[in-house]
């Protein structure tokens, strides 16, 4: 049985209670002094460090610059995943022979975690832009491809038949029927994909030498600044959430337009 929705006041109250108890426990743990403050900084230490990182360059850049360069890499890896994944998924759904060629290779490769591509990417691309883009791509690509393919495969047969009956070419059937019909599934895939791509980021930036939130965190680790590492984690979490909320908006806008 599904519980009835909570009243807004109650909902926000409980949310705040959850956040407060988490921060409270953390503060107590930091204050009782079981460990050194360098090892477990208090929440306000992290906030203070966050403020510093915004104005004082650490590892060569301020936090905003690190974030920006991370976002740029993410956009390239994610963009590439979308540019390859959507057309390939549609082609696989429309032409059985393409499906037969791609599926075995894809199934074999997708179980290699994005992070497991790090050594390979380092060998191939060194510290160039290619490495991180490849790793983010490996995280972001499978959900785009799978959701496009499944969405296109599950398109109601009546639309395909209508399209054929109306004399549409394979190209028009794919772009004007399969693609829009699969859009809800594709957008759901993009959300998963953006999440995995963004999560792969730190792994990707372990092999980058000059900038990025992941790089900043690695440097923080090297200089035993737990607060810096935590700031990086917070920044990654917040930006990830923002990306997901943005994509959710897109999803809702599409559903409203469709009258779902």
């Amino acid at each position: 049985m599904i519980a009835p929705p909570l009243a807004p006041a109650r909902f926000w109250g409980l949310t705040a209670a959850g956040a407060c108890s988490f921060l409270g426990l953390w503060s107590v743990a930091a204050l009782v002094g079981l460990t050194s403050r360098d090892f477990l900084p208090a929440p306000w230490d992290v906030v203070q460090r966050f403020g510093q990182l915004l104005v004082q360059p650490f590892a060569g850049h301020v936090l905003q610059e690190h974030l920006l360069s991370s976002l740029r890499r993410f956009a390239m890896g994610f963009g590439l995943a979308v540019l390859v994944g959507i057309p390939l998924g549609l082609l696989m759904a429309w032409f059985k022979w393409i499906d037969r060629i791609v599926t075995p290779a894809f199934e074999a490769v997708r179980f290699v975690a994005p992070i497991a591509w790090v050594p390979f990417a380092a060998l191939w691309f060194g510290t160039g832009i290619g490495g991180p883009v490849l790793i983010i791509f490996m995280g972001a690509f499978p959900p785009v491809l799978i959701n496009t393919y499944r969405g296109a495969k599950q398109v109601d047969r009546k639309y395909i038949e209508a399209s054929q009956m109306l004399g549409a070419s394979a190209w028009r059937s794919m772009t004007e029927v399969l693609l829009p019909a699969a859009v809800p599934s594709i957008v759901a895939g993009l959300r998963i994909s953006a999440g995995l791509g963004w999560q792969s980021l730190v792994g990707a930036e372990l092999i980058v030498a000059s900038s990025g939130v992941g790089y900043m965190m690695v440097k923080g680790q090297a200089s035993v600044s737990t607060a810096t590492v935590m700031c990086g984690m917070v920044a990654i979490g917040v930006v990830g959430l923002v990306i997901d909320v943005a994509l959710r908006r897109v999803q809702q806008a599409i559903e409203t337009r469709r009258g779902v």
Partner: peptide, 26 residues
Amino acid sequence: RAVVFQQFALFPWKTVWDNIDFGLKS
């Protein structure tokens, strides 16, 4: 050989105009 289906099978993502135009384009 144009078909009118029981479940209409109009493309929900296209306007009335574009639905009618779809076959003409081919």
